[in-house]
Design a protein around this nucleic acid. Sequence first.
RNA 1: GGUCGGGUGGCCGAGUGGCUAGGCAGAGCUCUGCAAAAGCUCCCACAGCGGUUCGAAUCCGCUCUCGACCUCCA
Length: 501
Amino acid sequence: MPLKLYNSLTRQKEVFEPINAPYVGMYVCGPTVSGESHLGHARPFITFDVLYRYLVHQGYKVRYVRNITDAGHFEEEGKQAEDKIATKAILEKLEPMELVQKYTHLYHWAMEQFNNLPPSIEPTATGHIVEQIEMIKKIIADGFAYEANGSVYFDVIKYNDVYSKKNQPYGILSGRNIEDQLETTRELDNQDEKKNKVDFALWKKAPAEHIMRWQSPWGEGFPGWHIECSAMATKYLGKQFDIHGGGMDLQFPHHECEIAQSTVCNHEMPARYWVHNNMITINGRKMGKSYNNVVKLSELFDGSHPILTQAYSPMTVRFFILQSQYRGTLDFSNEALQASEKALKRLMEAYEWLKAQSFTNNTSATDAALDKQLVTWVNELGEFMDDDLNTAKVVANLFEIAPLINSLKDKHIAADAISGASWSFAQKQLILFIENILGLKVVDGANQVQLHGVIQLLIEIRSDAKSRKDFATSDKIRNQLMDMGIQIKDEKDGEVSYSLA
RNA sequence: GGUCGGGUGGCCGAGUGGCUAGGCAGAGCUCUGCAAAAGCUCCCACAGCGGUUCGAAUCCGCUCUCGACCUCCA
């Protein structure tokens, strides 16, 4: 079955066919590194990481470009601080690039924590000022942009007039029509510079206090908010590429403007498949700076946010996100994360046990129905991924399989109930889906060898105590280990195992 | 105001005409010195009101209600 993706442009699921297989070009809008990443930022990067992994698994040679927006209104951080001294301190102590560097590091650290694969290319906006200026020059030359008082604006009305005739009006992606926008767009600064209020900036003249500024044919200034993605996508992926991804909130105006700019420059719709992830909400409301309801990733990982009762590992957060399909909103709460944490633990323990087994292919199934059921569940993993990355259903099936694994382990089912070949198949596929595609990894603590030895020793002492019916001692060991997050499990066969919380 | 998308059991969350979603929490049972873990069973939900249909959470209409975008935003 082929992979189907929901294309925002056509508003339907479409079979994914690359322009030039086996090569696939994918561009995903990265973060603005003017502040620390929050939970909301995690969703697109995890979603598109899974898409990237899945495309690679399918044999495509993927060039995954994810930018870093490090140009723009970076004086905002200073402005937010009301205390003038604090503002000054920030301004004096942090160079803009220092700020950018700091948050870029934090962002990279978070991506690594989430086990997101690094993109093939991670271009920065400030590193591509030249390309952006060239693009703007081209748009002006073609008559779709104009200079006004040191700034350059894109002529949306003209674009719409011309490209409506080519079935690509402005608003094609977001489903807006220009008349509505003319009525509803709010008044902004420098409105008088624009021919029309729907026009957007390609280049902005830098006011005296603006720190980040570059020389351009139109004077000192900085690039507009939309041109960087167009310039970098074109440079690294060509005039038309396969997938353009990002959060739903970028659909308009950001992606709409990208389409307009790139189409004028390159005479082609920049991307064929536009994929948008939905928002993470908190109490039903989008998580965002303006709502003052963000939970930063660092707060999540150390449990310091007031609404959290504990810290959550990056893998728990990843799993939480994968338990839903990317196009739906996902409502965040401490309770929901707790559920994910427990579920992930149960899943991974079953998985790790299965992974460590070796199966021989020569045993046949004594329970044919069960054998068939297992194979079906395993086969469905790929089908669900193909259906617009339905990781929620993939995870659901993993939880159908997990009890079967535990039943084999605890001998609730016969060792030969399911054939060795089927178990072997399941083992291989679970490694593929859990680790390589969903990107879930087993969290290893430090000093595993020594810790393991110490725990084994305690287990032995406890067993001796138990055999003497000295339950006071055995319970003391078990309970105190439990308090430290080490759980002792007396298995059916008399063996004792443990797991780390 | 305009455009668009939702309302699923205590919580999170799949599901576009008939077949168990899944997880967490809760209840019972098995196992166990007692627990825990694990397994099994139960908890039969689809905002409301109409309509279409043999049959609707799923299609249509209306009502209520929540949200997103329209300004930077993942």
